[in-house]
């Protein structure tokens, strides 16, 4: 158990570096990593399999190579935690990066930068069966990335430069907001996703389903997205998009999506 600890104003010029590195099944709480740097790979919090981080802060974590504010193994829980100003000089960066079966709940990730072309800057990047709940990602590259069989619930992605939320297969995405992201709010890059009750506002494209997608979309709202509110392929199972329904509208189709333009 690590509680009430701070790592502050530290840098490493040799090897990979960690702010906190705990053992398996550890509990880390009320702890902060602030202003740490490394020439090579860097992880603010390094949490192995089965660990949890509650009420943590990773702030100004800057590595020369792959850099994660919070790097977690499988079956980890991150809760009530802030990651801000996470950057990599020459590789990928992530506010939170977790392996399979991990949960991020009440997590705020803002300002994640990876300047090299082709090296993503993820806000929250989870592997299979990951869940993101009541979280916020702003000013990252890809806001939230899921692989397969995960969920994004009641979360927001704002002003991310490589997409709001991106997923592969069989994820459930409900009650989320994607706003001011480029090039899309929600990207369905796989199949059989369940996308309901979300709002996409002022992205380039609101909901974007790539070729071969067979996801289910219902009761979503897309407003003022620049290129398209819904850009989905014919194989997508999308409830009838109702365009600009006007004031006091009545719609009896309970599966309808709404597309609103200025």
């Amino acid at each position: 158990m690590i509680s009430g600890c701070v790592v502050y104003d530290s840098s490493a010029s040799l090897g990979d570096s960690y702010g906190f590195q705990s053992g398996f099944d550890s509990t880390v709480a009320l702890s902060s990593v602030i202003r740490i740097g490394a020439l090579f790979e860097l992880q603010g919090f390094s949490l192995p399999f089965g660990s949890s981080l509650t009420d943590g802060i990773a702030f100004r974590v800057s590595g020369g190579q792959a850099t994660d504010g919070i790097h977690a193994g499988g079956s980890t829980m991150i809760r009530g935690t802030v990651a801000r100003r996470i950057s990599s000089g020459n590789n990928t960066a992530a506010g939170v990066r977790s392996s399979d079966d991990s949960v991020s709940r009440y997590v705020a990730v803002t300002d994640v930068q990876a300047p090299t072309v082709g090296q993503p800057a993820w806000g929250i990047a989870l592997e299979n069966r990951g869940q993101v709940i009541h979280s916020l990602v702003q000013d990252a590259g890809i806001g939230i990335r899921l692989m397969n069989d995960g969920a994004i619930m009641s979360s927001a992605t704002l002003s991310n430069s490589e997409g709001g939320a991106r997923m592969l297969d069989r994820n459930r995405v409900a009650d989320n907001l994607a706003r001011d992201n480029t090039p899309y709010g929600f990207l369905l890059a796989g199949q059989r996703n369940d996308i309901v009750d979300n709002a996409a506002v002022a992205n380039l494209t609101g909901f974007f389903a790539q070729a071969g997608d067979t996801s289910f979309l219902a009761r979503n709202t897309a407003i003022d997205n620049v290129v398209s509110n819904f850009a989905v392929v014919a194989t997508t199972r999308i409830g009838q998009p109702i365009a600009n329904p006007g004031a006091n509208f009545t719609v009896t189709n309970s599966w309808a999506n709404f597309s609103i333009t200025p």
Partner: peptide, 12 residues
């Protein structure tokens, strides 16, 4: 303002 929290904060 009673309370003002900076960018990227979590308050509950």
């Amino acid at each position: 303002s009673i309370a003002s929290f900076g960018a990227g904060s979590i308050v509950d």
